[in-house]
Computed example of a mutant assay.
Amino acid sequence: MGFRRENTSYCYFGATTPISLPLDLEVRKIMAKSAILDTVADDFFDEHGSLDELQCLTEAVQRWEGEGLSGHSKVIFDTLDDLVCDITLKIFNQQGHDMKTLFQDFWREAFDVWLRESEWSRSKHAPSIDEYLRVGMLSIVVQAMFLPACYLASPKHPQNSLGTRYSKITTLLMLSARLLNYIQSYEKEMKDGKLNMVPLYSKENPEANIKDSVAYIQNKLEGSRSSCLKLQ
Rank of each mutant, 00 (worst) to 15 (best):
Y10C: 04
F44H: 09
G96F: 00
S167E: 15
K29M: 01
S154T: 00
S70L: 01
L54Y: 07
K90F: 03
L172K: 11
T170L: 14
G71M: 06
E47D: 11
V135H: 01
C11A: 15
A15V: 00
I76H: 09
S226N: 07
L115I: 00
R116T: 13
Q159P: 08
Q62L: 12
L83F: 13
T17M: 14
A110V: 15
D81M: 03
E59A: 15
W120G: 07
D43Q: 03
L138I: 12
T39V: 14
V113W: 05
N93V: 05
K100H: 10
G2E: 03
M99L: 14
I129S: 05
L89S: 14
K211C: 13
Y10S: 12
G49D: 01
A110P: 05
K29H: 04
E47Y: 08
G68S: 07
T170H: 03
L195Q: 07
G96P: 02
M99K: 02
R134I: 11
G193F: 07
S128H: 07
S128N: 03
G2F: 00
Q95K: 13
V141P: 03
M137L: 10
Q104K: 10
L115S: 04
S161L: 02
Q232F: 15
E119F: 04
V135E: 03
W114P: 09
A126M: 00
S226C: 06
L175P: 05
R225M: 11
S167Q: 14
D105G: 01
T170K: 04
S123P: 02
Y216M: 13
S123W: 02
G136S: 07
Q218S: 11
S50V: 05
A126Q: 10
K33S: 10
Q143H: 12
L231N: 01
E119P: 00
L138Y: 11
Q104G: 08
R178A: 10
R225L: 14
E119N: 08
D46C: 03
